[in-house]
Computed example of a mutant assay.
Amino acid sequence: MTETLPKAAGRARLIVLVLGVVYLALAVIGLAVLGWGSIRESENARLLGVFGLSRLLIVAHGALGVIAVLAALRRGASAFAAVATIVFVAMTAFGVVANVVGDVGDPLHMTWWNVGLYALSAVTCVYVYALRMRAEG
């Protein structure tokens, strides 16, 4: 049994809204941990004890969170999911390489927890996009 388009869209919007709030929360907590400063400053801090943290990563989390919330509120959840899947896969790939090679030259200070979060976010975005495809088809 296929879902109707409005029901699928509502579920997609809710999922993207939750994803956006999670990334906004990570940005705000990260900012509280590191504080303001130069993006180029390199501190090996941890967010919630496990996630790698840098000011550049705070900016990325904040931007993703704001865009996700706006997409959910403006009925653009499926479009966000399509683009965000690519972004999260790229962040996952960068994190894998950075963790395998080591922290040398990694401006984001990603840990395997970051990689897992981005991989899970990518899968979530694929699911959101699939909701729309299933409802349309």
Rank of each mutant, 00 (worst) to 15 (best):
His61Asp: 06
Gly30Ile: 05
Leu108Gly: 09
Asp106Leu: 09
Met91Val: 06
Glu43Trp: 08
Glu43Gln: 13
Phe51Met: 13
Phe94Val: 12
Asp103Gln: 11
Ala32Pro: 02
Ile67Pro: 01
Ala90Trp: 03
Ala72Ser: 14
Ala79Ile: 02
Thr92Leu: 06
Leu73His: 09
Val66Glu: 03
Gly102Ser: 10
Val104Gln: 12
Trp36Lys: 08
Ala77Gly: 03
Glu41Arg: 12
Thr111Leu: 09
Leu108Tyr: 15
Val87Tyr: 00
Ile39Ala: 14
Val33Thr: 14
Ile39Asp: 09
Gly105Leu: 11
Val101Arg: 15
Arg40His: 13
Val50His: 11
Gly65Lys: 03
Val28Asn: 05
Val104Ile: 11
Pro107Cys: 14
Val33Lys: 04
Gly95Gln: 07
Met91Asn: 08
Arg40Gly: 15
Arg55Glu: 03
Ala84His: 00
Gly52Leu: 04
Asn99Pro: 07
Ala32Glu: 07
Val50Tyr: 12
Leu108Asp: 09
Gly62Val: 06
Gly76Trp: 01
Phe94Asn: 08
Val33Glu: 13
Leu31Gln: 12
Glu41Gln: 14
Val87Met: 00
Thr92Asp: 06
Ile39Arg: 08
Ala98Gln: 09
Arg40Pro: 03
Gly49Trp: 08
Phe88Pro: 02
Leu64Ser: 01
Val66Gln: 05
Ala71Pro: 02
Leu34Phe: 08
